[in-house]
Design a protein around this nucleic acid. Structure first.
Lengths: 404, 404
DNA sequence: CTGAAAGCGCTAACAT
DNA sequence: ATGTTAGCGCTTTCAG
């Protein structure tokens, strides 16, 4: 399996080595008939350029690396898809690496990215703290969903507190007066959602908020248990709304409440918080926030590309003898929030999502509301139901392709 | 951002360039104190070797590429996870590429893999036919879920027909006599599942099989429509079991039947066929096949690694002047089906899954049954229900982490 | 055990 | 427009 190289092509085409290189990289510099000759030889020999050699000789690798701690969370998939689409749009390819929460593997992957001279890297650190060696990599980096980020680094995460606020305000607007907030808050995202809910609670002393700090992050059975328990209370102490600090918990709560003989949303409203499509399969479609992952991936790539360009500019400037003070400025100029193309979302919602808050160099993806049957009145629910079969309750469409 | 190179380390450590290289690649060839000196310098300078240069100089890239047409199908995720775990186990890293069904992007990714001198590539072609240029790549390749594979190429796919057989036999064993098979069979996997069902039908003339060739592959609403329609038939013509040729269809059918006032499984049994965890969120947990993806990824990597080793051996032999006829044999010897470590599966089931059929060089992943509430009698269903809350119907546990 | 030197395949100056 | 040549950073002989 001795691979054919550029000199083979040159010989086959009867031209020199440099001409072949030009034909590949600068076709305009070569006469059309020579070009045809070369391309023919390339096809005939099935020549594929050795990327490592090109890179070593000074090429740039138009590839972005995405290092994720896991693949099997709804959010990871969204991030990967958002990043991929934006990367392709910007002329880059994206390669995805799954560390499976293994720090050693993470280290290897990052070394691979740097070693392969990738154009840039998006990293979602496996722990909630960015490990030391990751803090200065000789390659543009953007951190995703990492609350603790090195000084001056770029990052983009979901605005968890805003999710909590959004959902709390929504159930209040739907008439809730006694709201049970369910979820175990040892993990920052849930804790921040709870903070958002609490902020709303502080603004609404007339409503009663009850926090039940329990329920596994990824399981729905705790939610079911708690939902049933809450639904079985006597009417005086029973909440009229449940907020699950994660959608999986909320879905469980729906099932639990129903099993306890309490209709959703008529007997009790239920809402999630994190827009996790993997948890949307319940018998009543769930009101929740927009999934943040797609936007995180999309924005991450935008920031990364901006950084890559800025760096290129800075280097070019430096080469031209210009002081590199302007370099930082170039980056700031480069970065602009462009129009969204979130699939299947209303334009208004898109704009809402696009209004990103910029603090230092950390972007936050703002949520918008996905109002569905679990908090809708009977009238509104009608619209959410599947059309022609009257008797069927709203069944969430499992078109996995477009949701994730 | 001029990266530190090996000569910098050499200067810093006060040794020669070659010694640093040895310290990195053959630590045993260098005196311990010199080694320490070098490592210190490496740390101090934050040196990261340039992978492209190493590769160009003859190194091998212990990285396997996985090229997938999409990320957001349950199966893709399983493949990615199975492949990753097996790859890490075998000492390789895995990078994942999502072509999103774009042939041009697929071409670029494959060129990237070859150009980067990856150790091998797993490809799930985006169409059901392997494109021409893919048919001979100068790198070990294993095709995944590709019915049409070039001569002599390695491949691994799910045994779709066996899935159909398995489910058909199961519902028969549960007492079904009139079975409706629902699903649109223009795509090979569904068509082959149907064939499996038909094979069983042929062996059981006493049972009535009715094929309804409709229902979108990834949507559940068609399933719901059809499920309701079937459930509303009068008792004489109403089927007592529905087989969805995809789980999404089956989940829809469950909801549709229930909405039409027909209990599942007491009024009508329902089963899926493809073990798609993304469709497991319905109100009754679904009987279906084991998800094939994890095993496909796992076996794919095993075959790939075997091929890589065989090739290495063959090259070594060739270098030693031995005729390369033995090379093919080496490969055959290398490849052995090892013990499974499918997470959360019973040992017996593991063995069943491990019994892979080997035809030429195509492996098929055999399914095993996941019997759940949608086909269980009242007695059996009890066991499947969530323990402590008696009244709650069996709610599928949304522990996404372990299913996908 | 160490150091010097020859490429790996390619790109980008340069020379023609 | 085409051919020639000097590296890119590293590994690996091969002498010391």
């Amino acid at each position: 399996m001795a691979r054919t190289k550029i000199s083979d092509v040159a010989r086959e085409a009867g031209v020199s080595l440099g001409t072949v290189s030009n034909a590949i990289n600068h076709p305009e510099r070569v006469r059309p008939d020579t070009l045809a000759l070369v391309n023919e030889a390339i096809d005939r020999l099935g020549y594929l350029p050795n990327q490592t050699a090109r890179l070593l000789a000074g090429g740039v690798n138009a590839v972005i690396g995405l290092v994720l701690p896991r693949l099997n969370h709804g959010c990871s998939l969204q991030i990967a898809n958002g990043a991929r689409n934006e990367a392709i749009r910007a002329g880059y390819d994206l390669i995805i690496m799954n560390t499976d929460d293994d720090q050693e593997v993470e280290r290897r992957y990052l070394q691979f990215c740097v070693g392969m001279q990738l154009a840039g890297v998006l990293v979602q650190p496996s722990t909630y703290q960015v490990p030391r060696p990751l803090r200065s990599l000789p390659v543009p980096v953007v951190f995703l969903s990492a609350p603790d980020v090195p000084d001056g680094a770029l990052s983009v995460s979901a605005d968890y507190a805003a999710q909590g606020r959004l959902i709390a305000e929504h159930v209040l607007s739907r008439g809730a007066t006694h709201i049970a907030v369910v979820g175990e808050t040892s993990r920052p995202p849930l804790a921040q959602r709870l903070e958002g809910v609490r902020a709303v609670a502080a603004e609404h002393p007339e409503a009663h908020f009850e926090v039940i700090n329990r329920g596994n992050r990824y399981g729905s059975s705790d939610g079911a248990r708690l939902g049933a328990k809450l639904a079985r209370r006597d009417p005086l102490t029973r909440p009229d709304a449940i907020i699950g600090l994660a959608d999986a918990i909320a879905v469980g709560a729906v099932a639990g409440a129903q099993a306890a003989g309490c209709a959703v949303p008529d007997g009790i409203m239920v809402a999630g918080c994190d827009g996790n499509p993997l948890a949307w399969g319940g018998s009543v479609s769930l009101t929740t926030c927009s999934p943040a992952g797609y936007e995180i991936g999309r924005k991450g790539v935008q920031m990364l590309v901006a950084q890559i360009n800025a760096e290129r500019e800075a280097e070019a400037a430096e080469a031209a003898g210009v002081p590199s003070a302007a370099a930082a400025e170039a980056m700031r100029r480069e970065w602009y929030p462009s129009a969204l193309d979130y699939p299947g979302m209303a334009p208004a919602a898109q704009n809402a999502a696009a209004e990103a808050e910029i603090k230092n160099r950390h972007e936050f993806v703002r949520p918008f509301l996905l109002e569905r049957a679990s908090t809708m009145g009977a009238d509104a629910a009608q619209k959410g139901a599947i059309g022609s079969i009257g008797a069927i309750p709203s069944i969430p469409e499992l078109d996995v392709g477009s949701y994730l």
